[in-house]
């Protein structure tokens, strides 16, 4: 190979590396900031009074190629790098050392890389990113409402808790899985069509699942498991509700209610909580949100008791 060709080849390489480095310049890319700003400006006052995604600071994970990765704080003061903290690569809610609730976030590109199984295009990935921001911001809102004070014990972390064992057994139990799916299908149907018959079907399916639980485990185990389920439905189900509303607002599509099957661990409570939140929210003049996070009230307390039916009858 001629010397000039070799030189040209290495000049091309240097140019590529230079383009790569210049593409990474800045703390956070402009596209990510644009998406974050849009999400933070969404108005949820009609969906959940008091919830404003824009008031919570964001800690964005910054991948550095050669040096240690870092945290970029984005709040009303703008962007700044926090160097003395180990970053967490997650989409989550967290409490920083100053006691401030923050949203842990990735940039839009990393989010798409992490979430994309080949089925997302750029615009859908952006919508999911914005919906995820609102989901995590809602967890910050829940914390502000006192949810984690009510459940300070930390349902699964309690010493001697029977929940992990019960949960594992139930995940492997075909009959329980069938009963759960049956209940979720009834809930999805009720969410699609508001009728007394669908309400009764939901209640019957819930009762059947409850009977099965009591026939398999002792009362203490069942109560612990139901507390755990109620906690995750409350935390993740309502956040999923906000996430789906965000997707609906941004994409212009109506909310959909479908079940992909039984999900193990806490994953199943996202969709069950979403269905239940939607059903309760559909009832006009029925205030279930004010004390939902600062008390240990559950979805079932509202769904299968007198207040909901009274409101429905008035309608």
């Amino acid at each position: 190979m001629r010397k000039s060709s070799v030189v040209l080849w290495f000049v091309c390489g240097a140019a590529l590396l230079l383009s790569f480095c210049s593409g990474r310049a800045g703390l956070v890319d402009a596209h990510t900031i644009e998406l974050i700003d849009q999400a933070r400006m969404l108005d949820f006052d009609e969906d959940w009074p008091g919830f404003q995604p824009g008031i919570y600071p964001l800690d964005i994970y910054r991948k550095n190629l050669l040096t240690r990765d870092s945290v970029i704080r984005y709040d009303s003061d703008g962007l700044r790098e926090i160097k003395d903290r180990t970053p967490v690569y997650a989409l989550s809610m967290d409490v920083d050392p100053d006691g401030q609730v923050v949203v842990l976030l990735l940039n839009a590109r990393d989010f798409r890389s992490f979430a994309d199984a080949g089925d997302l295009d750029a615009s859908s990935a952006d919508l999911y990113y914005q919906a995820a921001i609102c989901h995590e911001a809602f967890h910050c809102f829940q914390a502000g409402q006192g949810l984690y004070d009510v459940y300070a014990d930390g349902i699964t972390a309690r010493d001697g808790s029977t929940v992990p064992a019960t949960s594992r057994l139930l995940d492997a139990d075909d009959e329980y899985r069938r009963l759960w799916v049956q209940e979720m299908e009834a809930l999805a149907q009720y969410a699609k069509e508001d009728s007394r018959q669908n309400h009764q079907l939901c209640f019957a399916a819930y009762q059947a699942r409850l009977d099965y639980l009591y026939s398999r485990f002792d009362d203490t185990e069942v109560q612990e498991y139901l507390d755990y389920a109620a906690f995750y439905e409350k935390v993740e189900g309502t956040a999923q509700y906000i996430e789906n509303i965000t997707l609906s607002k941004l994409s212009g599509k109506d909310l959909e209610f479908a079940l992909t099957g039984y999900a193990e661990g806490t994953a199943k409570f996202y969709s069950s909580g979403f269905f239940k939140a939607f059903i309760l929210d559909r009832v006009a003049d029925f205030d279930w949100k004010t004390d939902f996070f600062n008390t240990s009230v559950t979805f079932e307390d509202y769904l299968f008791t007198v207040p909901l039916q009274e409101c429905q009858e008035e309608q």
Partner: peptide
């Protein structure tokens, strides 16, 4: 087709995208 409720991705995008991936 990889599809679930409230997925904003159009069906055709999801189908061709999965094709390229596989």
């Amino acid at each position: 087709e990889v599809s679930f409720a409230n997925n904003p991705t159009e069906e055709v995008i999801s189908q061709f995208g999965s094709q390229w991936k596989f």
